Measured scan of single mutants.
Amino acid sequence: FEIPDDVPLPAGWEMAKTSSGQRYFLNHIDQTTTWQDPRKAMLSQM
């Protein structure tokens, strides 16, 4: 499912887009990137 862009990312995360428009996520805390939206895990725990 798609999460609306107005749902905030967890602390330390940033959303970016590739030149082709694909979204990816940067974790500044552990210096990693992922295609997986970290908000999905956050919302599934609620």
Rank of each mutant, 00 (worst) to 15 (best):
F1H: 01
F1M: 14
F1D: 15
E2I: 10
E2F: 13
E2N: 15
E2C: 10
I3G: 00
I3M: 05
I3L: 02
I3H: 05
I3F: 15
I3Q: 00
I3W: 01
I3N: 07
P4Y: 07
P4E: 15
P4D: 15
P4H: 10
P4F: 10
P4T: 15
P4V: 09
D5H: 09
D5P: 08
D5G: 08
D5R: 07
D5Q: 13
D6L: 07
D6H: 04
D6Q: 12
D6E: 10
D6V: 07
D6I: 11
V7Y: 06
V7I: 13
V7H: 08
V7P: 04
V7W: 11
P8C: 12
P8L: 06
P8W: 01
P8S: 05
L9Q: 05
L9P: 09
P10E: 04
P10G: 04
P10I: 00
P10Y: 00
A11G: 10
A11H: 14
A11I: 06
A11C: 05
A11M: 14
A11L: 11
A11P: 15
A11V: 12
A11E: 14
G12F: 07
G12W: 03
G12N: 09
G12H: 04
G12L: 01
G12D: 07
G12R: 04
G12V: 01
G12S: 06
W13Q: 05
W13C: 05
W13M: 02
W13P: 03
W13T: 03
W13K: 04
W13N: 05
W13S: 03
W13E: 04
W13V: 06
E14K: 06
E14I: 06
E14F: 04
E14N: 05
E14V: 04
E14A: 11
M15F: 07
M15S: 12
M15I: 10
M15Q: 09
M15L: 12
M15R: 04
A16F: 04
A16Q: 10
A16C: 08
A16W: 03
A16M: 09
K17Q: 10
K17Y: 14
K17R: 12
K17F: 15
K17H: 10
K17I: 13
K17P: 04
T18I: 01
T18S: 08
T18N: 04
T18G: 04
T18M: 06
T18E: 08
T18K: 04
S19G: 12
S19C: 06
S19Y: 02
S19M: 12
S19A: 13
S19L: 11
S19E: 12
S20C: 13
S20H: 15
S20L: 09
S20E: 14
S20T: 15
S20P: 04
S20D: 15
S20V: 10
G21V: 03
G21S: 06
G21P: 01
G21N: 12
G21C: 04
G21Q: 08
G21E: 07
Q22P: 05
Q22L: 08
Q22T: 07
Q22V: 11
Q22S: 13
Q22M: 10
Q22K: 09
R23E: 09
R23F: 05
R23N: 12
R23D: 07
R23L: 12
Y24F: 07
Y24Q: 02
Y24S: 01
Y24P: 00
Y24H: 01
Y24R: 02
Y24M: 07
F25Q: 02
F25A: 02
F25I: 00
F25H: 00
F25W: 07
F25K: 00
L26S: 04
L26T: 06
L26I: 15
L26Y: 11
L26A: 05
L26V: 11
L26E: 05
N27D: 07
N27S: 06
N27H: 01
N27M: 00
N27G: 00
N27I: 00
H28S: 06
H28Y: 06
H28P: 05
H28V: 09
H28I: 03
H28T: 10
H28A: 09
H28F: 04
H28R: 09
I29N: 15
I29A: 13
I29T: 12
I29G: 13
I29E: 13
D30A: 10
D30P: 01
D30G: 08
D30W: 11
D30Q: 09
D30V: 07
D30I: 11
Q31G: 08
Q31M: 11
Q31T: 02
Q31H: 13
Q31V: 02
Q31K: 15
Q31R: 14
Q31S: 10
Q31F: 03
T32R: 06
T32P: 00
T32W: 11
T32E: 08
T32A: 06
T33E: 03
T33N: 01
T33P: 02
T33C: 10
T33W: 03
T33M: 05
T33D: 01
T33G: 03
T33L: 03
T33S: 04
T33F: 03
T34V: 02
T34S: 12
T34M: 02
T34Y: 03
T34D: 00
T34C: 06
W35H: 09
W35M: 08
W35Y: 09
W35A: 03
W35R: 05
W35L: 05
Q36I: 14
Q36C: 08
Q36N: 08
Q36S: 10
D37I: 03
D37M: 01
D37T: 01
D37W: 00
D37F: 02
D37V: 02
D37H: 02
D37L: 01
R39P: 04
R39Y: 02
R39A: 01
R39C: 01
R39L: 00
R39W: 01
R39F: 01
K40Y: 07
K40M: 06
K40Q: 07
K40H: 08
K40P: 06
K40I: 02
K40N: 13
A41G: 14
A41R: 12
A41N: 05
A41H: 13
A41P: 13
A41W: 09
M42E: 15
M42A: 14
M42G: 13
M42L: 14
M42F: 14
M42S: 13
M42P: 14
M42N: 08
L43G: 14
L43Q: 14
L43M: 14
S44D: 08
S44N: 08
S44G: 13
S44F: 06
S44C: 11
S44W: 08
Q45S: 13
Q45Y: 05
M46S: 15
M46T: 15
M46I: 04
M46E: 13
M46P: 04
